[in-house]
C-alpha cells in the first residue's frame, strides 16, 4: 500500500434519490471524504455495466453505484433491472479476476444525507486499504501509453 495514496473514486448515482441525497449531505454541512467524482444518471437502470469497466480504465481505483431503494424507483422498476444486471456483472468481474470489492453498491434515498457521507467514507477507506488499482495499467490507453499489437 503506497504511502499517501489517495483513492480515486467514481460514483454513478441516480438523480432522484442518491444525487438528491448527496445534495442533502452538502446542505446539512456534513463533511465527507473528497475522493469521489459523482456522475448523475436519471436512474440506476440507465447505468451500463461497461461504465464500471471504463471508470477503472480511466484511473478510478474504486466505483460506487447507488440509487433508489427497491420499490421507490422514480421510474417504478429501473432499480430492479439494475439490481439483476449488477448481480450478473459482478459474477463476470470476479471470474475474470477483477476485485469486486472495488465496486460498491448501495441504496441511498434523497433523505439519507448521512448515509451518503458514511458510504463514501467507508468506501474510501476500503479502497485505501486495497491500494491503487494496478491491474488496468496493463491495458494501454490511447495517447497515454503506446499501443502496438503484433
Amino acid at each position: 500500500m503506497a504511502d499517501g495514496f489517495e483513492p480515486r473514486l467514481t460514483a454513478f448515482v441516480c438523480n432522484w434519490c442518491t444525487y438528491a441525497g448527496a445534495d442533502l449531505t452538502g446542505t446539512s454541512r456534513i463533511r465527507y471524504a473528497p475522493n469521489v467524482r459523482i456522475i448523475r444518471f436519471p436512474c440506476t437502470g440507465r447505468i451500463d455495466f461497461m461504465l464500471i469497466l471504463k471508470a477503472f480504465e480511466q484511473g478510478a481505483d474504486g466505483v460506487i453505484v447507488s440509487g433508489c431503494h427497491p420499490g421507490d424507483c422514480h421510474y417504478t422498476a429501473g432499480n430492479y433491472h439494475a439490481r439483476r444486471r449488477w448481480m450478473v456483472f459482478r459474477r463476470l468481474l470476479d471470474f475474470v479476476g477483477i476485485d469486486v470489492e472495488r465496486v460498491q453498491f448501495a441504496w441511498v434515498s434523497a433523505a439519507e444525507g448521512a448515509k451518503w457521507a458514511q458510504l463514501v467514507n467507508e468506501v474510501t477507506e476500503k479502497i485505501r486499504a486495497l491500494g491503487p488499482l494496478e491491474e488496468f495499467r496493463r491495458l494501454p490507453m490511447p495517447g497515454v501509453q503506446p499501443i502496438e499489437v503484433m
Binding site: 499501443i147 502496438e148 499489437v149
Partner: peptide, 12 residues
C-alpha cells in the same frame, strides 16, 4: 503481423 501489426498507432 511482423510487418503489418494487428493494431498500430498512426498518430497521437
Amino acid at each position: 503481423a511482423a510487418v503489418f501489426p494487428r493494431c498500430e498507432e498512426l498518430l497521437r
